[in-house]
Design a protein around this nucleic acid. Structure first.
Length: 566
DNA sequence: AGACCGTGCGCC
DNA sequence: AAAGGGCGCACGGTCT
């Protein structure tokens, strides 16, 4: 007996859920449920066997999946209409007329429902709640939107690619919800010990840690400024000027270029005060509960398609605190990152087989050196990064010229994207995500009106953005696909039996080109295989037979800190 | 008191 | 080893 291939869920009112069971286009049975009956309903159709389960269609994964996970459930696949809507709305290869309906504006504005800092943590204010404010996101007509999206996809000349992107985004939404549900293992005791090492014992509320106070005292003394507040750029710049240092700004890089006895304590104060303010004891109290850190993960949260995260700065966990990320007893972390993801993606999307060949040895930068384009590995890095970011001046700019001679297709792909951006045009990623339209006076200028310097600057700046967009965005969709496929592979590893997501090998963090998997120790080797398999599958899925590989650095370890090579 | 912006810095 | 892309977050400072 096989269940429906698709189930569309819709809320008619706060406690009234309607499920339409059907196969493509066919509306079959309609079932009404209460909210609390949802997990059992989902579990009943999802089954336990591999490959079973329908495609769940819902307005927004963040409004359906957390309760299923909390009840111990899991779904295999879904369509996240909010995420797919956002992609299609901005894609230059979609006929917008097909996507437009009476409630399109509401779909445009739909926001994910965040969990961080609300229900579980407690103290933070104002949940952006399920039914508070505009109920719309919960009450939009999902069936109508699905029909519009399917029509828009079917009519697109880039149908295949866009469907991959829609599937990847939706699967990413599932992975993101599971990551928040399981949480990143976080040892508060280790974190505290690290803070004591760097800052001294935890001070009384409102007081500065000893090491911070000492650095401040030395800074004030060296500048002969007893009431200096180094957190105030204006105050600091004044004090520096009195000491004979005229600096354009007070950034660390600028400071470290001058010689003055105040610089060292000042920079130490910066470093420590940053640690204390961003990831100190307050952070620990606010974000870590029962050995887990649970930020919200937001696939497609960044214009380029990269994931964003909210709650505690999850994407910038400082390196010094990574020892606090430790697998549970009997478990391991599998940490994997892709070497040189963006230049590899550049080779693929531009069809530059020479750059792909340079990447084939495993170290793309070394490959660029070996091809004779530049002399040293660091020049190669400078050249490649400069090309992707739009460096013009300095050695970065010079190196790009060398790169262009040897890899004209890759460099031309970037130049074309930059030129389109400077003309105010939209560019797209490999799978069809469109860049936002620029605004500003330079976009509406008649050709015969001379631009001001400011306008020229903005124009070039937008060109650098679109130049980077095609690479960063295409890399982001490769990475989301990797995560989506890895999620599948991991579930398979857990065995056919039951078991919650967090009791089997599961993703706990994703950082643009790096994943952390928490796994029972006995399965760690298989997880390593799964991570590699998923990367290979992602490459084939997106780029077919194009000869680019995505080599991974993979480490099995107890702590994230142990994953730095070796 | 709260909204907003600029500066600076952590990460990729 | 240059300064070119993307974020989230804390803080100072200003405005309302």
């Amino acid at each position: 007996m096989s269940g429906p291939r698709q189930v569309l869920l819709q809320r008619l009112a706060p406690d009234v859920v309607v499920a339409q069971l059907g196969d493509d286009g066919d509306r079959g049975e309609v079932v009404r449920l209460r909210e609390d009956e949802l997990p059992a309903f989902v579990g009943g159709l999802e089954g336990t066997g591999a490959g079973s389960g329908p495609r769940w269609v819902w307005d927004d994964t963040t409004r359906w999946y957390p309760q299923v996970l909390a009840a111990g459930g899991r779904v295999r696949r879904c369509t996240d209409l909010r995420l797919v809507h956002r992609v299609l709305r901005r894609s230059p290869v979609v006929d917008q007329a097909l996507l437009t309906g009476p409630d399109t504006a509401a779909w445009d504005e739909a926001q994910p429902l965040l969990l961080s800092g609300t229900a579980l943590g407690g103290s933070a204010p104002a949940p952006e709640g399920l039914f508070e404010l505009h109920p719309p996101a919960g009450l939009l007509d999902a069936a109508a939107e699905l029909a519009r999206q399917e029509a828009a996809l079917a009519a697109s000349p880039a149908r295949g690619h866009l469907q991959l992107l829609a599937a990847a985004e939706s699967a990413a939404a599932l992975a993101a919800a599971e990551m928040t549900h399981a949480g990143l293992p976080w040892r508060a005791d280790v974190h505290d010990r690290l803070l004591v090492t760097h800052l001294g014992p935890q001070p009384a509320a409102g007081e500065a840690p000893a090491a911070l106070a000492a650095a401040l005292a030395r800074t004030r003394q060296a500048l002969d400024a007893p009431s200096l507040n180094p957190d105030s750029p204006a105050d600091l710049q004044r004090a520096l000027r009195r000491a004979g240092l005229e600096l354009p700004d007070t950034r660390s890089g600028t400071l470290s270029q001058v010689e003055h006895p105040a610089v060292a304590p000042l920079l130490e104060h910066r470093r420590l005060s940053r640690l204390h303010a961003a990831n100190g004891w307050r952070w620990l109290r606010e974000w870590v509960r029962e050995g887990r850190y649970r930020p919200d993960h937001l696939p497609g949260g960044v214009v380029s398609g990269r994931w964003a995260a909210q709650g505690g700065g999850a994407l910038s966990v400082p390196a010094v605190l990574r020892p606090a990320v430790v697998a549970d007893d009997g478990w391991r972390l599998v940490v994997a990152d892709v070497a040189q993801l963006e230049p590899r993606v550049l080779a693929a999307v531009s069809g530059d087989v020479d750059l792909a060949r340079a990447a084939a040895g495993g170290d793309l930068y070394q490959g660029v050196v070996d091809s004779g384009a530049v002399a040293t590995r660091s020049d190669a890095k400078l050249a490649v990064l400069g090309a992707m970011y739009g460096a013009t001046a300095g050695s970065g700019g010079r190196m790009v010229e060398h790169l262009a001679r040897r890899y004209p297709r890759a460099v031309e792909h970037l130049e074309t994207a930059a030129a389109a951006g400077e003309r105010g045009e939209v560019v797209r990623t490999w799978l069809g995500r469109g860049s936002p339209r620029p605004s500003g006076s330079w976009t509406q200028q008649a050709p015969d009106v001379p631009a001001t310097d400011a306008e020229l600057r903005e124009r070039r700046s937008w060109g650098r953005f679109t130049r980077n967009f095609v690479v960063q965005g295409s890399a982001a969709e490769w990475a989301s696909s990797w995560v989506a496929l890895l999620r599948e592979e991991l579930w398979r590893l857990g065995g056919a039996g039951a078991g919650r997501v967090e009791q089997r090998p599961h993703l706990v963090l994703f950082l643009h080109d790096e994943v952390l998997v928490h796994t029972p120790a006995a399965l760690a080797d298989e997880v390593v295989g799964a991570v590699r398999t998923a990367a290979e599958r992602a490459g084939r899925l997106l780029y077919g037979g194009f000869p680019i590989t995505f080599p991974l650095d993979v480490h099995v370890c107890r702590s994230w800190a142990d994953a730095d090579d070796g």
